[in-house]
Design a protein around this nucleic acid. Structure first.
Lengths: 336, 336
DNA sequence: GTAAAACACTTAATCGTTTTCGTGTTTCTA
DNA sequence: TAGAAACACGAAAACGATTAAGTGTTTTAC
């Protein structure tokens, strides 16, 4: 590995001069500078991020905390899309991204914060984790710049999808299609769930839609099997709903299967709505009506905000950025 | 940030002693060692990976090259699963993973190899990229330990799914269900495609299955729209196939839609088989018959092999590890 | 023509670790 | 009891970069 020392020797100048030449400082003569750059290229100089980081305290590396209770991890469609967008935005701005370890390593495990300090991340993005984990708390409250996605912490930047508007739009759409008996299987408790649920109730009231208690059930996110069971409960009611909303598209798939297995038709007998707008939903029969999240924007916003916070901490506004999704009109919600 | 220097001052010993104590060297007295560790904990010592890396030339960081022509990136279901497994295996063994930049950064872009050297990756995994990219070549031929997934390079370790056996098993299953007119829409040229295609022909011959040329078409991977078009071509033939195999599950979704839109029933009129076994396939109607790849094993193997190559270069066998998938019997391939 | 300013480098300290040699005590060994 | 091990620790160099301060030379200004 050829270092600045080698170049300085080859060029007959000091290491400092090499450093400055390569970094385009303006107290180096232009022909010296050109020559040094030339030689560096010829010798195949490769900079050493560790040395640079040690000296400058900047790594141009962003940590990403990415995991959840179900251990869906990277295979979580919605968050994978967000992460993908986050990644390319960060890369375009000159940052690399490294995952913050979530599994216990060979020897003593580090906490998220310890790990972040160890790697010297310039900033951290928290996505798709259990936000009530004390280690997450510790990380978020630390001195390291942080953005969170889909969860609001006090006095931190967060990027959240507009669950209130999303649920309102979805329910309104369903209502306009003529449905008057709408059930909602919501996810387990979290800020996302709470936003959607209260929006559901609030919108129902606005629309003059009566929602009996037995129409509102809970199931874990992305658990097709659980959604099945809940769906069957709903279908067993004396007056079953004409439309069922699910916590996410995957759950909707599970629900659809339960419905079809009873010989019922979608959307003729029962309508179904998902949430998230994952790709597979477009390809199934009938095409799933859902809220299409703007994952590209979520990821991009998160990266931009975080990098802004890193590079211009004073002028970066600490705020919650809300990203709207929109109703994707498939064919799983029919007219009544 | 409290460093070894701070601890050495607090304990009245030299920095060297602190380093050795914390690293459990055995030329430090046990009570001194205990005391130093104690103080380190109390003072909230946080180690600095950059300094350590600079000195030891080991980062415990693995680079992952992950991208493709379609820019599916992280949202590529099959590879996301592989990566997820890779990630958790690596983490369990004490390695972090960092993405190798694929987009051009703000200033001059680094090549994959330059980037890897810059970050000092102990090793690199190459997944889901265009393997004919000269930059990939450069990286693979370099001094850095490398494993590749689903592509074989000369004299490098690679983990490949058993496409020959997979295709054979799938076609054999289809044959046993009574199909005699089987079409295959294969992916674009790559080592994976070639294995599957030759296995398809070979197996057909073994089975005594005649495959007319017009039954074999090409479409890009994971392109539902292209699969639609090809499917329609097949359905327009004077003797259309009774079963269509697709390059992957997503393409199969596209094909299924084309079939259903013609009012044909799956599997009564036309049967459909996918490849990969992504989650969504389980949830659609009819459930997709496909080859379920062992993504967990692929990722785990890749990580284990790479880490072995890093830690024990001499004793690690350079080989192609083949991971078998198996037929997932859904309901999209019917009996004839 | 001379002091000051501008220019083009160099020196040397520093970031936080690791690790090779010492070196001074203590404990065996014969 | 003298010499050799064994033990417990320290000094200092090194990893590869950055940067403040210093130095000698040339240009500028009046």
């Amino acid at each position: 590995m050829v270092s600045m020392k080698d170049i300085s020797a080859a060029c007959g100048v000091s290491i400092a001069t090499v450093s400055k030449a390569l970094n385009d400082h303006n107290d180096i003569g232009s022909e010296t500078k050109q020559h040094i750059k030339q030689v560096a290229k010829e010798m195949g100089y490769s900079p050493n991020s560790a040395a640079k980081a040690l000296k400058t305290n900047r790594t141009y590396n962003i940590g990403v905390l990415f995991s959840d209770d179900n251990h869906s991890g990277l295979t979580h469609d919605y968050f994978a899309f967000v992460l993908d967008s986050f990644k390319s935005t960060a890369e375009r701005k000159g940052y690399d991204i490294t995952f913050i370890n979530v599994s216990k390593s060979r020897d003593r495990r580090m906490s998220y914060l310890e790990h972040s300090r160890y790697r010297g991340f310039d900033g951290v993005a928290v996505v798709c984790v259990n936000f009530y984990d004390p280690e997450v708390e510790e990380l978020v409250r630390s001195e390291i710049p942080v953005v969170t996605v889909d969860h609001v912490f006090n006095n931190r930047i967060s990027i959240v999808s507009d669950n209130v508007k999303g649920m309102r739009d979805l329910l309104t759409y369903i209502y306009k299609q003529g449905h008057r008996r709408v059930a909602y299987i919501h996810g387990v408790d979290s800020s996302v769930t709470r936003s959607r649920l209260s929006s559901f109730y609030h919108t129902a009231e606005e629309l003059g839609l009566y929602v009996p208690d037995e129409y509102v059930l809970e199931a874990p996110y992305r658990d097709a099997a659980a959604a099945r069971i809940m769906t069957e409960k709903l279908l067993d009611l004396r007056t079953p709903p004409t439309c069922i909303c699910y916590p996410d598209d995957f759950s909707a798939f599970g629900g659809m299967n339960a419905i079809m297995e009873r010989g019922l038709k979608i959307p003729e007998d029962v309508s179904v709505a998902g949430y998230d707008g994952i790709r597979a939903g477009m390809h199934i029969e009938p095409q799933l009506t859902t809220i299409k999240q703007d994952t590209a924007r979520l990821g991009r916003c998160a990266a931009e905000k975080l990098i802004s916070l890193i590079e211009r901490p004073k002028t970066t506004i600490i705020e919650q950025v809300v990203v709207e999704g929109k109703v994707f009109e498939g064919r799983s919600v029919g007219k009544r």
